[in-house]
Amino acid sequence: MAALDRSLLVVIVDVNPAMWTAEAAGEHAPFVPIIRHLCMFINAFRALDGGNRLAIVACHAGKPTMLIRADEELDRSLHTVLDTALVLVLLATPDDPAQYNSVMNCIFAAQRAAIMIDCFAIRTSSTFMQQAAHMTGGVYVEPTAQQELGLAQLLITLALPDRACRALLRQPKAHDVDFRAACFLTNQLLDRAYVCSVCLSIFHHGDIIECPACRSRFPPPPRLARKRAKRAVAPAHGGPVIGGAHAAAAGAGSSAPRPAL
């Protein structure tokens, strides 16, 4: 019984030095109170259940460090031991489009393992984390300066309940999730794109001969079809971005990147 109630919380804190320089330059208020609010939230999580486990990861530019590690036993089989696993991301720097692929992979893995990702974007905003929260059933919040003063309260209200409780408690509505995908080659965020019909990779330009992800060869596009293929790839509602883009591309008939048979 007790084992069923325990949950694992993984807190990922963005400690990118970019925010210190901004802080030193007096561009915004210091970050230290935010860590204090985070500590309160973590104490509340501990108070919820004696069996609750915690891991804290500090995320430096390109180099994550595990600050507090959950039990070894939990590490091995996360979702078999635990009822619920939550990931809380405290973000302070904007998205890096170069990370698009790995972020999406993480999101799908979390979705499959029924792990919720909550994200609090402090004085920044993130398209990727917005999608992560939306797809895993978590919350994405950009606290206002006023809300930042009571961040602990916001965290306890929004990020503390597990999946079963969130079904009973009111959570903020996600407004207009930005579902734009990034080009696999140029890392640009795209409204419309070309999609490899074999591996569903997304490209800004249609004039590539071979898919760089799956090595499928595309035939040279006929001139007439090429114009039609430029039809908009509308943002999908709710579903996986790539699936949506694929559907649009398939509807366009003989779209540009196509594998050679």
């Binding site: 108070a47 003063l149 602990a152 309260q153 309940p161 409780c165």
Partner: peptide, 25 residues
């Protein structure tokens, strides 16, 4: 207090913690 919070049914538990956090502001 902590034992009571842990023993409460889930929704009541979150109510209690939210109220405590509210007072903090």
């Amino acid at each position: 207090c902590e034992a009571v919070v842990r023993a409460l049914p889930p929704v009541a538990r979150h109510y209690a913690l939210r109220l405590v956090a509210l007072g903090d502001t």
